[in-house]
Nucleic acid binder design. Sequence first.
DNA 1: AACGCTTTTTGCCAAATGGCAAGTGATTTC
DNA 2: GAAATCACTTGCCATTTGGCAAAAAGCGTT
Lengths: 189, 189
Amino acid sequence: MKELINYLLQFGHLNQQQIDLVESKGVFKEIKKDEYFQEAGRIPREIGFLTEGIVRICYYNNKGDEITKYFIDENNLIVDINSYNQSIPSSAYIQAITDCKFVVLSKEALNDLSMTILIWDDIINKIVNKALVEKVNKISPMLSEDATERYRNFFTKFPTLANRIPLSYLASYLGITQSSLSRIRKNIR
Amino acid sequence: MKELINYLLQFGHLNQQQIDLVESKGVFKEIKKDEYFQEAGRIPREIGFLTEGIVRICYYNNKGDEITKYFIDENNLIVDINSYNQSIPSSAYIQAITDCKFVVLSKEALNDLSMTILIWDDIINKIVNKALVEKVNKISPMLSEDATERYRNFFTKFPTLANRIPLSYLASYLGITQSSLSRIRKNIR
DNA sequence: AACGCTTTTTGCCAAATGGCAAGTGATTTC
DNA sequence: GAAATCACTTGCCATTTGGCAAAAAGCGTT
């Protein structure tokens, strides 16, 4: 729970009373490897703060291939923000890559916080904004890189992540086949 | 100027007095094809609302290749939001692909508006958020598509854009060489 | 119409990646 | 500890894309 509070405090000030309120709303949740924090087709009704583990966001394209869009690790908020805001079914799965622990805030809890804490919306906005900017900055350069560069850069920027992720997921994140990734890894050594 | 106001009103309500204030701050600006609205290395000091024309965001990667990151057309806000917020030099150029007309709001003007209009920051936040989400949704699927699909989808989704953009820019946006794009176009016909 | 300039297409070949199936190695399960 | 399962690698060949240079097409100017 402390992790969540520290995380929030990076984006705006909260007094002790407000912190207590947030903590009173947070609920612990655990899921096992391969289980889903959220499934495609469902309307997201909660936001999760990941305290332990790694998840991936994935979906199936029109050819039926499973595509890993993104990885998220410890101390980050997890939600399909599009679907959450608009209360529409999510188009993606959020799946645990390792056993995971969360602090969960329900939509009702978040509404309460939004009503009670003046700068709550502002904090959430800043968090979402920052996450989106990071996402763009990660993905955008990849388009102009070849597969070897993409793998190299991923490995350089997220060395700890790279070793905790099955290569099949990493391959689809990098936009290549698993065999290509395997060959690339061989050539780099 | 009306276009800007209509655009803003999509994201929150403004009364007539507030609208007048915004209009009083807006300055018209024109640049010719190939000129820059903003150059890499400079700290952005204004936000532009594009009323006529198309611009591209581009930069040079470490190999010296010119990369087109993004296209923006009429009725959209234009700014390197990272650099603007943090007042750090921008890493990208914003270049006119056609002759362009803008309404420009300076940083000072924006600060005034932020102080005077209570929901101004909220409106800007929503705009930035929406733009970022759109950007992610455009770019992210491209990673798992081959070049032909990327071109086809771009053409389907932005048919008017596609015909106003030099193919060399489009190629680097799609992450392929111009000759590849040319061959793809031939095969599609 | 002719010229110079820019943009786009082609041709040629090399390199990168995909598709499929089989092989290897590790891990789980009973 | 043998069998089954899963994760990763490899081999083979087809397809896609890149790199480079030349050719063709488009465009504005005179």
